[in-house]
Design a protein around this nucleic acid. Structure first.
Lengths: 206, 206
DNA sequence: ACATTATTTGACTAAATAGTCAAATTTAAT
DNA sequence: ATTAAATTTGACTATTTAGTCAAATAATGT
């Protein structure tokens, strides 16, 4: 873990924030510099282009997301609880973002991927990587549900995980497009549990 | 139905095509004019801005999509068949687009909505309208499934329709991001039928 | 045929944007 | 304290982009 210069980290965080709540195409290098309070020369000292910055942002962002996800999906927890925690985490994060920026921002990987993955293979590759890892966490949890006899094992865990994750991306998209936080509250957990086959009752308090 | 001048229609179609396969932010007015073989002066004769063009494109595009959807979801057909036809239609369209442009283009409303609906309320409004209408078609079909005794009626049709449509949007996003047509083939029908509660067997030949 | 309206042309401006660079400054190492 | 490396500064260029406009051309109605 090499330490990142302050200005560089500032630019990375600013880029993530701006692209997440707006879009890749709408955010210019000037925007990022202005918001970060950094001059253009400094930007080009650390990054070769917007594409370069974006790729480094994705890597940088994932280093902060990964440990959270591994905590949420920790195998030491009850599998149902992992999905509960996941839904709560997503809702809480999106609520914070909406409070900050006035918009439901959705999934940064899905939004960026939708816009950019048919333009840039490096971006595409990184996003697919995140998708694969997250689906892996889903699959492991579903496997544990089966092993615990909590759901029946008609479908393969990886298949269920894939469908469940696809649904989650759908919810995040709809919530962003319609700028509706309640969509996440109402539809994320219930739909996810439906697809996986968990008995849907009122959620346990976090 | 007033007739649209040739040049204007050309610009509308070009804009739809370019934005669909790339993105809103990446496509410039110059791009659209160049691709359409139209000079900028003509562009501004018909449209006031890119935003104006986009809104008119959405309206124009939906006039061609709507009758197709109403045919697919015609109440005279068996309800299961409607969903079969819907899946086949989506797959076929995306296959054609991929053959033309080399990319899975996904749902134009969802992609544009993701990028633009927190920037522009008029665009957002039109996209939500399409979503509402499509979910209505889903809900009607699900209601017919219940009436025919083909699925049990635990959940409300509108609720199921909403979850089903959310899943469809998820599939379209994943297919676009990963540029993978097979995702639509493999996951669209099976996931949709699962959520709705239709017995999933091998699809009937179209 | 004539007048009116719609459309097209192409050159134009102004602003935004990406990217460069040498010199000045700060930081870190010996 | 001195040197070397890293960082910052701010002014610079070139290109792209949105948008304007008056004149020329084409289409339409009478």
């Amino acid at each position: 873990m090499q330490k990142i210069p302050k200005t560089k980290e500032n630019l990375l965080n600013t880029a993530i924030s701006l692209v997440w709540r707006n879009s890749y195409g709408l955010v210019t290098i000037d925007d990022i510099c202005k918001e970060a309070g950094v001059l253009k020369g400094s930007f080009y000292h650390y990054f070769g282009s917007k594409q370069d910055l974006t790729i480094q942002s994705l890597d940088y962002f994932y280093t902060s997301v990964r440990p959270m996800f591994e905590n949420i999906f920790s195998p030491e927890k009850e599998p149902v609880q992992r999905f509960e925690d996941y839904c709560n985490f997503v809702y809480k994060s999106q609520k914070e973002l909406k409070a900050l920026y006035g918009h439901v921002c959705g999934c940064p990987y899905a939004s960026l991927g939708c816009e950019m993955s048919n333009q840039d293979d490096e971006i595409k590759h990184r996003i697919e990587e995140v998708f694969t890892l997250t689906q892996g966490l889903f699959a492991k949890t579903i496997k544990d549900l089966i092993d615990d006899g909590l759901i029946d094992e008609k479908a393969k865990p990886t298949d269920k995980a894939h469908k469940a994750y696809t649904y989650v991306i759908g919810v995040m998209m709809m919530a962003r497009i319609q700028n509706d936080l309640n969509l996440i509250k109402r539809e994320m957990r219930s739909g996810l549990f439906n697809i996986i086959g968990i008995n849907v009752k009122t959620p346990k308090p976090a």
